[in-house]
Design a protein around this nucleic acid. Structure first.
Lengths: 226, 226
DNA sequence: GAATTCATACTTGTATACAAGATTCGTAGC
DNA sequence: GCTACGAATCTTGTATACAAGTATGAATTC
């Protein structure tokens, strides 16, 4: 793997785990020293992150971790709803939808109580479900855009805390959506799916500094100790 | 403006004007020499173009202008249809849609014969119309994604040749869509809009090497003469 | 004490040198 | 004639040096 690629992943992890906080300013040489690399691969990584929407560059004046913006996240959630509902609508019209959905069904339509799931893994598993939906569609570009949108939203999902009740609900909702698609009930499927995503969308307004600090401690140690 | 930015724009122009043809292989130093710059800004520009979907890098083995792929373009057109129809649906539900659409109406709802339009500018003008629609929506992220999709499609639009008949049709279709939105006729607006975009979508299958060579001559001189 | 100016340190932007890997083409061996 | 090998050449990947612009803070002036 490239050094630039490594730096890119590490930086993203640092941002996701809130070792680098929204609003933090930093310089290329600072990162380079921490990563034991030169500025060249660091710059490459940073420009990728900028296009991903995670950092901003100021002309000859350093970088900043993109500050949180409710509206930004809400708009992205709306795009997610739009894309996923479109795929669901199309699936409802396809005759081979049962085969295409087979993988998702085996994961989500069993009794939830039979599965042991760590609360911290739920966000990851849930994401897999929605990626899976897009994979069942037949539009690679739509899939790529959806992936990009989810990627940008991942940082807010790191703030979610999943209670057992919510785990159960996630399973229920996913299997309900799948069964609606299987019975070609397009309107029920899209309605349930929209509601399901809106649960996450509504958490965006609840972001607080305290919440971020909490997540920071949950996920990792301090940057200086690393 | 950055040198990297300049190189980026110039390269994109070279690709759009078919001075660099789909499938062409090239190296960083080759571009650097042509642009009178060092490899550093060239690399930055190339990596941006790669993320835009215009070029591909091969590990320590040069670059390539992304070859044409029908399916790729068709899928992007479908995303465009989805996004634009969504905005239109929302507009139909907004009470202040008349004010928001005012700008577009003044451009497109006058008698087409009163306007003199160069056939080569039609693709540009048409794009402006669709950007304008997204601006009327209230989702900046959706707008950005739409812009990115249109950007990727721009290269195929360079192959369109607009006959006068098509210019007239473009005006008719745009004004028809606008009037449908103004009368809150969501289904007519989305149906007309879909048809309108599908006209472009259908041209994708007609791309031939001959067509590309033709466009190349239409747009510009040879790279070596520059 | 407040405003201003200028030097200094710090930032990114760019050029260049070198390292590491891939390809290509000629040559030796059969 | 065909295959295998290897050196030369080309490619990108990375480190480093320098250029250009920005902010900061101390000294100066009022």
């Amino acid at each position: 793997m490239n050094l630039a690629e490594k730096v890119y992943r590490q930086l993203k992890e640092d941002i996701f785990d809130f070792r680098m906080l929204p609003g933090d300013r930093f310089s290329e040489s600072e990162v380079a020293e921490r990563m034991q690399a030169s500025r060249t691969p660091v710059r490459e990584a940073l420009y990728r992150l900028e296009r991903d929407g995670y950092v901003q560059v100021y002309f000859r004046n350093g970088w900043q971790v993109r500050p949180f913006d409710f509206r930004y996240f809400e708009e992205l959630y709306d795009v997610r709803i739009l894309l996923e509902c479109e795929v669901v609508r199309r699936l409802c019209m396809e005759s081979d939808r049962a085969e295409r959905l087979a993988g998702l069904v085996t994961i989500w339509c069993c009794k939830p109580s039979q599965r042991q799931v760590d609360p911290v893994d739920v966000a990851f598993l849930d994401e897999e479900f929605h990626f899976g939906l897009l994979e069942c569609g037949q539009n690679k570009q739509m899939e790529a855009i959806h992936k990009g949108v989810c990627e940008r939203l991942r940082i807010v999902r790191r703030l979610d805390f999943y209670e057992p009740r919510r785990i159960q609900a996630t399973y229920d909702e996913h299997s309900s959506i799948l069964s609606a698609i299987l019975s070609a009930d397009s309107s029920r499927a899209t309605r349930d799916l929209t509601k399901h995503i809106e649960v996450s969308r509504n958490t965006v307004r609840e972001i607080t500094v305290h919440r971020i600090q909490e997540a920071r401690q949950r996920y990792s140690t301090d940057l200086s100790r690393k």
